[in-house]
Simulated assay, not measured.
Amino acid sequence: MNDFDLVMAEKPSPEQQSFKCGKGNFKSNALLKERDNAFALLYKKFKLPDYTGHDHGPGEGVWTAALCPPSIKQETCLECLSNTIPYLVKNCPKQKTGVAWTVLRTHNCMVRYADHVILGKPAEPVWGQFSSPPNQANANANELENGVNNLSNMLKTSAAGGDHLKKFAVGSVKYGPSSHNLYGWMQCTPDIGKEVCLKCLNDATNEMHKCCSRKRSLGGTTLSANCYFWYTHLNF
């Protein structure tokens, strides 16, 4: 896809990307071409903080959407998308639906496509997960788990209470006897409702414990097509 042959400021390593493909394949090369065209249009027209969908063709078509944190610059988001779109197309070459995530040191992004309308229709809960190695100086797993819960409780209501353009929250808490600092953010796609967003973020928190906090990871990220949760011990 030549539309995305851009110079990357921060190219992701393989462990910083994840994808999920749905069942069933497109039945024609024309629809695969429509997907490429829809991605090209998405990239061209995407403006923060939008969660923008584009489709092509009457009747059968392909819908695409992308999400970046609203706290980053437009060009930073586009750099992330330019890495993620070809990665998704490569790993879901013919499938009717797919989602991919790229997680970098200071930000992340998500790209999604489907053979049906995306906006306002939450996807099935599939998860991508990333974790940092354990920090031996950290508090124990129970203390970190409690810290992650406190961070989640502080952020999720604010994120879910956002409007049709932005459902995003950022903040920090202290936890454990040594008052470790824990930083994080949460985001939902703004097309879903408050209750759906809250459920997704609760699920993201549970997934976070499985992959990251119970292993005393320095940082962790859990992502779905509808929301994500990120925490770190490093002040971003």
Rank of each mutant, 00 (worst) to 15 (best):
S82I: 13
G162W: 00
D3E: 03
N91G: 00
A100S: 13
Q95C: 00
N226R: 05
G171K: 00
P58G: 12
S213C: 01
K11T: 05
G147K: 04
K20I: 14
W101R: 12
C77L: 03
R216M: 11
G24H: 07
N181P: 05
G98I: 00
K174H: 05
H54N: 06
V148E: 11
F130I: 15
F39G: 00
L198K: 06
G61R: 14
K167M: 08
D36F: 01
S178H: 06
N153T: 07
S158E: 13
S179C: 02
G61N: 10
S217Y: 03
G161M: 13
A30K: 06
K45D: 10
N91T: 03
E124R: 14
A139M: 12
N150I: 08
T102L: 02
L81I: 03
K45L: 08
F168T: 01
P93A: 00
M8V: 05
K199F: 03
H54L: 05
K94C: 00
S71R: 14
F4Q: 09
C80W: 03
K90I: 02
H164C: 04
L81H: 10
K11E: 07
T102E: 13
Y231V: 11
Q74F: 10
P12T: 04
F4A: 04
N149C: 14
G162S: 04
K96Y: 07
N149D: 14
F19E: 02
I192K: 07
V7N: 06
C109H: 08
T64H: 11
P133G: 09
H209V: 13
S131P: 10
N135I: 15
K44A: 03
N181W: 04
F236H: 12
N135E: 15
A137F: 12
A66K: 14
S82C: 09
E79Y: 11
K47F: 02
E207F: 08
S179T: 05
H107V: 02
T64L: 04
S28M: 01
M1G: 08
D115T: 12
C68Y: 02
C109N: 14
A141F: 05
C227W: 00
Q16L: 09
K174R: 11
N83A: 06
K47Q: 10
C68G: 03
N83R: 14
N150Y: 09
E145Y: 04
E60Y: 10
C77K: 01
T157R: 13
L104A: 07
K73H: 11
Q74G: 09
T76Y: 11
R214A: 06
P134E: 11
